[in-house]
Simulated assay, not measured.
Amino acid sequence: MTSTAFPVGGDFPVRRLGFGAMHLPTEPGPARETSLAVARRAVELGVTLIDTAHLYGGGANEELLAEALHPYPEGLLVTTKVGVARTGPDGEWKLDGRPALLRDQVEQALRRLRVERIELLQLHRVDPDTPLADQVGTLRDLRTEGKIGRIGLSEVTAAQLDEARRITDIASVQNRYNLLDREHEPVLAACEAAGIAFLPWRTVAWGESGARAEVTEVAAELDATPTQVALAWLLARSPVILPIPGTARIDHLEENLAAERLVLLPEHRERLDRLSEAVT
């Protein structure tokens, strides 16, 4: 069995299988009510890591989680991300890591999440037009001010992670990674060596895993679903991996979390490990 807990930043233990809130509808109506129910059910089922971002509805996703879960139960880590804003020439979303904007988005997140400190704040993307030292340095200053507990990065290279770690402690990295997409293997290796939480997004390759014969065969042998196999593989891949699969349906949520109990035998692991060799 794989370990079911990991200490983010070395001091905030969470259940390794978390929940990504990105797909939850936030518009008023029945879909929003379902979103509230899904978030609450996740916590009922023992999820202690929930991921959101300013980008998800311009803060609407953060407000939804606060409505569903505040006051938050002890031990629940709600992490959000900043650094993408509607500051493009025509008001479109663009990477924006200017210090003043990062500060403003953190202040907005504190208000929307109804907290005095964000326990894990992640830089959504590195803005190529702003020095990384300015972006990470701003988050470091906000941590010193007590508005952030721990700092994370998203979609970074191993070199960017190394540069950021020379500026301040990094508690997490959130990069795209799954059975069929292992581009960020070097980043995962760096996180593993340093004890940094690695939060893969697009955990099941948006359903493409289930189209692969090798995955469906392993799923059939284990009386599981292809999605569960993909998540179980991630959990077994490295002790620092904290998958955050997202869904807007309670049945899918329950299916995802059941993957934690799935045990992949060595032969299953070998067959699944070879999948990346066939993916270009």
Rank of each mutant, 00 (worst) to 15 (best):
M1F: 06
M1E: 11
S3I: 08
G10H: 01
L17E: 09
G20E: 01
T26M: 12
T26I: 04
E27L: 08
G29E: 08
P30Y: 06
R32A: 10
S35I: 09
L36V: 14
A37H: 12
R41N: 05
A42P: 10
L45F: 02
G46R: 10
G46K: 06
G46N: 12
V47W: 04
I50G: 08
T52Q: 04
A53Q: 05
L55S: 14
Y56S: 04
Y56P: 00
G57P: 11
G58W: 04
E63G: 14
A66W: 07
A66P: 05
E67R: 04
A68K: 12
L69R: 05
H70A: 15
P73E: 03
P73M: 03
L77T: 00
V78Q: 09
V82K: 02
G91Q: 05
K94E: 12
G97P: 11
G97Y: 09
A100Q: 15
E107K: 10
E107N: 13
Q108M: 13
L110G: 11
L110V: 00
L113Y: 09
L113M: 14
H124F: 07
H124K: 09
R125C: 08
V126P: 01
A133F: 03
D134C: 05
Q135R: 12
V136E: 09
L142F: 10
R143V: 01
R143D: 05
T144D: 13
E145F: 10
G146P: 01
K147N: 02
I148Q: 03
I148A: 14
R150Q: 12
G152S: 06
S154M: 09
S154K: 07
Q160N: 08
R165E: 13
T168R: 09
I170R: 08
S172N: 13
S172C: 15
V173G: 04
N178G: 08
L179P: 06
R182L: 08
E185Y: 01
P186M: 06
V187P: 02
L188D: 11
A189H: 03
E192D: 14
A193R: 13
A193Y: 03
A194V: 00
A197T: 05
L199Q: 14
T203F: 00
A205W: 02
A205G: 11
W206D: 12
G207C: 07
E208N: 10
E208T: 03
S209A: 15
A211H: 09
E214Y: 02
E214L: 07
E214T: 15
T216A: 15
V218W: 07
V218I: 14
A219F: 03
A220E: 13
D223V: 06
A224M: 11
V229I: 13
V229F: 04
A230E: 02
W233E: 08
L234M: 13
L235F: 11
L235N: 09
A236Y: 03
R237E: 04
L242Q: 10
I244P: 00
I244W: 03
P245K: 11
T247R: 04
R249Y: 09
R249E: 10
R249T: 09
I250W: 11
A259T: 05
E260Y: 05
R261G: 14
L262T: 07
L264R: 03
E270A: 15
R271T: 02
R271D: 02
L272D: 06
R274S: 15
V279S: 01
T280W: 01
